[in-house]
Simulated assay, not measured.
Amino acid sequence: MSDPAADLKALLLKKSVRTGTFTLASGKQSDLYIDCRVTALDPFGANLIGKLGWAAVRKKISEENLKIDSIGGMTLGADPISLSVGMASAIEHPQEALQVFTVRKEPKGHGRGKQIEGNFADGQTVIVVDDVITTGGSTIKAIDVIEREGGKVAFALVLVDREEGGRQAIEERGVPVISLYSRSTLLG
């Protein structure tokens, strides 16, 4: 029997992790680039992310007796992760199934001008998702949008924490962070 955490780690290392010299979204230079979208958009990766993400989320919900309505984050990195976890929740525990939403980088320029699309409503308690956190900036931007639209963020689910201050910045906002991997555990 295979180990889903080891399988996802192997897939991330094969498809998503690159070393060299890179400029990150934060503008910082780094010797490491992690593009989780490649793994999250792989059907095997998505399945593993759903299983492991839902297990981590369900554990937190159970330990703290939380009522969570939906899951989502800043497009594009959060989208496949949120959907995978939402699908796993619907399959494994239909009574606790999480609805899924996405946060646009900017409000839509037409129609209703929404910045949050999908299954989100004012008053919901949600999980914010990100693929990789470095400074925490994109996760915090998603939190700001969710709160402005009337949502309450219970905690954040992150696929990889680069261990460069992002977790601390998010937690300083009062949002606990669960990460499936850190730089240490991924590259360890």
Results as ranks from 00 to 15, higher is better:
residue 134 T to I: 06
residue 188 G to P: 07
residue 29 Q to L: 14
residue 73 G to H: 09
residue 125 T to W: 04
residue 67 K to P: 00
residue 125 T to K: 14
residue 113 G to T: 09
residue 184 S to V: 04
residue 114 K to W: 03
residue 9 K to W: 12
residue 75 T to Y: 09
residue 47 N to M: 14
residue 22 F to C: 03
residue 130 D to K: 02
residue 155 F to Y: 08
residue 77 G to P: 07
residue 139 T to P: 00
residue 30 S to D: 01
residue 111 G to H: 07
residue 130 D to H: 01
residue 2 S to A: 12
residue 104 R to K: 13
residue 174 G to A: 09
residue 120 F to I: 08
residue 141 K to A: 14
residue 112 R to M: 14
residue 143 I to K: 03
residue 44 F to Q: 14
residue 159 L to S: 03
residue 165 G to K: 06
residue 14 K to A: 12
residue 170 I to M: 08
residue 183 R to E: 13
residue 183 R to N: 02
residue 170 I to H: 07
residue 102 T to E: 10
residue 70 S to Y: 13
residue 141 K to Y: 11
residue 49 I to C: 01
residue 79 D to I: 10
residue 174 G to Q: 11
residue 110 H to Q: 09
residue 32 L to I: 15
residue 187 L to W: 06
residue 77 G to I: 09
residue 156 A to Y: 11
residue 135 T to P: 01
residue 116 I to F: 01
residue 98 L to S: 07
residue 19 T to N: 08
residue 92 E to V: 04
residue 172 E to I: 04
residue 143 I to N: 02
residue 143 I to V: 15
residue 152 K to G: 00
residue 101 F to V: 03
residue 134 T to K: 00
residue 164 E to H: 08
residue 91 I to S: 09
residue 157 L to I: 01
residue 83 L to Y: 14
residue 147 E to Y: 03
residue 156 A to F: 09
residue 186 L to M: 04
residue 111 G to Y: 01
residue 10 A to T: 13
residue 11 L to Y: 07
residue 89 S to A: 13
residue 30 S to C: 02
